[in-house]
Structures are given as C-alpha cells and as structure tokens.
Write a protein that binds this DNA or RNA. Sequence first.
DNA 1: GTATGTGAAACCGTTCACAGCA
DNA 2: TGCTGTGAACGGTTTCACATAC
Lengths: 209, 209
Amino acid sequence: MKSVNIPAIAVQRLTLYARNLALLDQKGMEVVSSAGLADICGVNPAQIRKDLGYFGQFGIRGVGYYVKELAYEIRKILGLEKEWRLALVGVGNLGSALLRHAQFLDQSYTFVAAFERDPKRIGMQVGQITVAPVKALKRLVKDKGVEIGVIAIGPRWAQQVADEFVGAGVRGILNFTPVQLRCPSDLHVENVDFTRMLDMLCYRLTLNQ
Amino acid sequence: MKSVNIPAIAVQRLTLYARNLALLDQKGMEVVSSAGLADICGVNPAQIRKDLGYFGQFGIRGVGYYVKELAYEIRKILGLEKEWRLALVGVGNLGSALLRHAQFLDQSYTFVAAFERDPKRIGMQVGQITVAPVKALKRLVKDKGVEIGVIAIGPRWAQQVADEFVGAGVRGILNFTPVQLRCPSDLHVENVDFTRMLDMLCYRLTLNQ
DNA sequence: GTATGTGAAACCGTTCACAGCA
DNA sequence: TGCTGTGAACGGTTTCACATAC
C-alpha cells in the first residue's frame, strides 16, 4: 500500500469492482482486462488500473487480472475478510428488511442485536434476533462486541441513538435517517439518504424538461 | 441560470443545503450567512456561495440569506415545486416502508401505484395504495402519469422490472437493488446501494485498525 | 463594518500515452 | 504482441482573496 492519500472516491469504485468481479466469477470467467471490467462498470480502464495501483500490483501484463484473485484482494483491501458484528436500532419495515437479508448480501456482516423504543416490538423474534429495549443497548453492544451500529428509525431520535452507540463504543455508524449526525471525529459515519437521491433525480428530470 | 456546466456534485450539495435550511426554518431562524450554513453542513463557505452562484444571486451583501426564501429557491431549482408521481415495484419490508412514509418525507412525492410479482401480496392495501400485479404495470403507469419508477425487489428481476418501466415510459428510476441497470441514456437512474456504503465503512474502520 | 459574488490560484482527480513486462 | 503500471498532461473542483453592495 502506498503512502499517498487514497481518494475516498477510489475506494467507492473499489466496491463497484468487487460487485462486478463477483458476478464475473459466478459466470465462470477466469480472466478480465481493465478494459473489460471498465466496460461493465462504466468507467475508464486507466481509472481501474490507477485505483488498484493505490494498493498494489494485481495484474499480469499482456494478460489482465485473474477474476477470483482480484475479487479476493479487493475484499481484503476493504476489510471484508473478517466478520463484522452489527447492531440495529429500529425494527420497523426497513429494519426488518435489513435483519432478514443482511446475511444474504454478504457473508461478512452479521447482526448480533436489535433494539426498539416501541414496547410493543420488544421481545419480537426477527430472523435469529430477539428485539431488546434501547435501555439495554450499551450492555449488549459491549457484551456482543458490536463494531457497527445501524440506525433505521425516524429522524426524531436519530441523534440520541447515535450518542448511545458512541457511548457504547461502536466504531462506525450506518445512518438511514436524513439527519446529519454530530459525532466524535474518530467515529465513522456513512449516510444512506435516499430522499436526497430522489431530489437529485428530480433535478435531472426537470433539466431535460 | 448560467450556461456553464453545473457539476453534479454541486447539485448534490444543494440537496444538503435544502435539508438544513428547512431545519433552520423550523427553528425560527430568519437569516443565515454562508459561513453559518457552511458550519452546519460541514462544507466551506465559499463553496456554498459558488454552488448558489451557478443558479443566480440569492443573498444580500453584508447580511446573508433569508432562510425561507433560499429554501424555496433551492426547491425550485431542484424541481420540487411540483408533485412527482411515483410507482413502486416490490412491496416487501423496504417497499412498505417507502409507501408509508413517502408523503411524510416531502410533499413533492406521491406514490400512485405499487406492483408485486408475488400473488399473495396482490390486492393488499398499503397506505392509500392497492398492490397490483406487475402485468398491469404498463397500463397503470400510463394511466396514472407515473414519472418515476422505484425498484425495491431482490436483485434477480431488477433488470426486467427496469425494462418494464422503460417500456411504460417513466423518465427516471430510483434503484434500491445492488444491480447496475442497463437503461437507455435518456432515462435517469439513481442508485441507493447501502451494501456499498457498508463496505466503505468497513474500509475506513480497517484503515484505523 | 459585514457578508455576498466571483475571478484567480491552488488543489485534486482523471485521462493520456508509453515504458515495462509477460 | 498485448495489457499492466505509472509519470505527465489535462480538466475540473475547491479555496482564496478581494471588489462590490448593503
């Protein structure tokens, strides 16, 4: 790995390459060139080579990249060759969908706890998990070694739940609310705000009439 | 509006400003400076002024921006001062959450139809909407003047559903599957892929030990 | 005095083009 | 020969700095 600062956008594309390499592997393709992968991903071939170049040399000149090998290397770069323990707050429609399908999406992610404010939902069984009260968050997060907190509630209590997660010692938060969380700088937050995506879609539709 | 090409990333930030201006308005704040808004949004003050500069002059020198007025102007720029009609495919956990809360999130968006492949779900009432079979998509999308299609199903049939939407004449797609849709270039697609967000979070956590 | 609007400068990311290697 | 890896050129975005206006 080089000492230059790696742009976040390059890492973002790495996740894109990972997805498409997994698909190519499923289809039985063994080797792919930067041009081939670039075509599938909708980017410039040189960009793929540059992005990979931040982390090492994974190809063979005159040949290309071995699909399985490159897929593995990227997963290793992204830190997906370990199991990440997640905890969810908010077992509504969205939260339930996450609980049920997380294992499906990637072997690396496992929900080990789920919390709710609504007393009616506490004790519910969703997938493998029993829904606990938010009061129990700090203890369970510590006991179960949760590393990533997922917030899938309405915007109103989002900040408070984030604070709870911080207090309990999680290192990252995946935030599904449209709220910008105020968090210590050593905590990593990724926001999934589809309402802003929708707004951008409308802008583009409005531009072209 | 100026004739220079407006960077997509500037529009993305516009949606951020819109969110925070709405919050400031709710709190009763009447005027805000680019420095004040920048602090809240976590960007550089000059960037806000530049971004706004692409679309016109909205501030008063020596004073700042009127919160309500700027919020309105940005909504107008984004094309949110009209009602957008959406149709959903996939009334699972995620889809149900969208149907129930869309009106909540912004007055501009209304779901006018919802579709399912699963016969068990057809005929279900979710919010104001009766779930219809995918077979009826083309007719209903045309009859109800749907402009934006929302795909919230598993990855397997995502491309096929996208093709249906294209055939039915929608102009934009909000895609919640991790599949990269192949669509005609005049159709606008926005992807909401939280699995990639999660991967990026893991990368950052892995970097800092 | 204060904060916007905007050219100019600095910075960063993308693409080119080719040396290097299988 | 063919494709990777990478310095250099290019283009675009961010930030600075100040003239301008309230």
